[in-house]
Each structure stands twice: as structure tokens, then as C-alpha cells.
């Protein structure tokens, strides 16, 4: 993992060390084609995108607009069919499966709509999981795991299994798992999709806090304008392309319809 460790040295924490003109993430003419022949389907038709370190980005768009495909590529779960994907100025599209796994392990955190916690496993063991793959020792795992649970306000629930937690609590455990490795980027795929509005606001406030206080870049897919309102940047996808990008100056304040 010469590439990833090189990146690590260049960028201590935050994005401050990186040259001001080099965004954290750059997509250049990214295309993605599924299938072959008659069933061929082009999900992305040449996406250009810059995401600055420390930003809070909401990705919106109708189904089939390419936003999920883009998120999968940004999350290094999928590879583009064409174009370039640069993470901290390094090409990712040329990395193999294991190298992308190492990139995810070191720099990325994931939060899913369905929480995706391991069942019959305590909150702490769930949170510790990424640390296990990093090869951290038992004590470090416990300390970092408890610290992450404390950040999401669930340290007292460390020995509860997902079945014993509410949906909001499960999502907070999932967030703790995503941030326990101190990632640069947190990718959230409709994190509030399965929650009621009150819990949704709690989760959004938690993400906003992590973005602000821990300087984690947040990329979030959402259908709900109320949730997108918490972001600083909103990217709209349409027909496999970026439709428009809007900057919100007062994130967290739900805009009135028609007023922007």
C-alpha cells in the first residue's frame, strides 16, 4: 500500500496540508457502464466533480440519476468504466481490489440506510470491527471503540446487541463504527431513510457535529430536502450527470420553498 501510506504522510489530519488548489476528491469525465450489448446501460456519462476537504455534501437526484453509482465509486466499492478518480491527488481508478480495500480501511467510513450492524453482536464489538481489520490490539480497540460510542452518546449501551437498540440508536452505533478509525471521509447512503423525523434530525446534528468538530468530510445521499438542508454543498444528479451544485450559506436552516 505504498500509495495510501504516501497519502497518509502528506495529509496529517484535515485537509490543511494539501495544496489549497488540490481538492480532496476529484472526478474527471467519470463514466460507468453496466452490462454489454443490447442490455448495456450507461449509469454515468462523464461526471466532473470536486469535493473539498472538510465539506459537508448532500447528493440528491431521482432514482437512476447516477448518484448511487457515483457514491459507490467515491467509496471505492466500485471502479469507473472510464475517466479519472483522484483521492488527494492520487489515482484510484488504477488500484486493484485489495488496494481499494486498504483505502477504505484507512480513509473511509460508511453509514448505510439499513444500519448494517452485525446481529447478535454487541455495540462495542460492532464498533471495534474496523479496528480488528487494522490489527489494533485489544486494549486500543476497546479504548477507541468506547471513545467512538461516547461521541455518539451510546457509551452506556456498549454491551447491547442491535436487537436491543432502537433504530436511531442502531444508526448511531453505525456512525460510531464509521468514525472509530478517524476516517477522512464519511460516506452516508440515506442515513435517515429508515428513521422518523425526530431521530433523523438527531442523526443529522450528529453528522454536522462530526463534520465541524472532527473535520470529517461528509458525503451524504438523501432524498429529503430537509436533510440536505444540513449540508454546506448540495449536488444534484440528473441522467448520469451532475445537474447543478448549490452552496448553502446557513446549513441546518431549512429553506422555505422557493426561497434560496
Amino acid at each position: 500500500m505504498a500509495v495510501a501510506s504516501g497519502v497518509r504522510v502528506a495529509a496529517s489530519r484535515a485537509g490543511a496540508v494539501v495544496a489549497a488548489d488540490a481538492p480532496l476528491i476529484q472526478l474527471r469525465g467519470v463514466t460507468k457502464t453496466y452490462g454489454t450489448g443490447a442490455t448495456q446501460f450507461q449509469a454515468l456519462k462523464g461526471v466532473d466533480l470536486d469535493i473539498a476537504a472538510g465539506d459537508f455534501v448532500a447528493v440528491m437526484g431521482p432514482s437512476g440519476s447516477g448518484k448511487s453509482t457515483t457514491m459507490n465509486i467515491l467509496g471505492c466499492l466500485d471502479v469507473p468504466s472510464g475517466g479519472n478518480f483522484l483521492f488527494r491527488g492520487h489515482h484510484v481508478e488504477t488500484l486493484d481490489r485489495d488496494q481499494r480495500a486498504m483505502l477504505r480501511r484507512r480513509y473511509l467510513g460508511f453509514v448505510f440506510q439499513g444500519f448494517n450492524l452485525l446481529s447478535r453482536t454487541t455495540a462495542l464489538e460492532n464498533v471495534e470491527l474496523p479496528l480488528l481489520y487494522r490489527g489494533e490490539d485489544k486494549r486500543t480497540r476497546r479504548d477507541l471503540g468506547m471513545a467512538a460510542l461516547e461521541k455518539v452518546g451510546l457509551d452506556k449501551w456498549w454491551d447491547h446487541t442491535p436487537a436491543e437498540l432502537s433504530g436511531g440508536q442502531q444508526q448511531r452505533v453505525a456512525i460510531a463504527r464509521a468514525i472509530v478509525t478517524s476516517p477522512d471521509v464519511l460516506l452516508a447512503d440515506e442515513p435517515t431513510g429508515n428513521l422518523d423525523s425526530e431521530r433523523s434530525v438527531e442523526i443529522m446534528e450528529l453528522l454536522t457535529g462530526l463534520n465541524r468538530d472532527s473535520n470529517i468530510t461528509v458525503l451524504m445521499v438523501t432524498h429529503e430536502p430537509d436533510m440536505a438542508a444540513f449540508a454546506r454543498t448540495v449536488i444534484h444528479f440528473k441522467d448520469g450527470l451532475v445537474d447543478r451544485i448549490e452552496a448553502q450559506h446557513r446549513p441546518g436552516v431549512v429553506p422555505e420553498m422557493g426561497v434560496n
Partner: peptide
């Protein structure tokens, strides 16, 4: 399968 997906997403390599 989903559990394996979770493990892969949080950075497990195939070998692990």
C-alpha cells in the same frame, strides 16, 4: 452475504 458485504465495505480484503 450482507455481513460479508459489511466486512468488505469497512476494509476487509478478500483474503481476510
Amino acid at each position: 452475504t450482507r455481513e460479508i458485504g459489511i466486512r468488505l465495505a469497512i476494509g476487509a480484503v478478500a483474503r481476510e
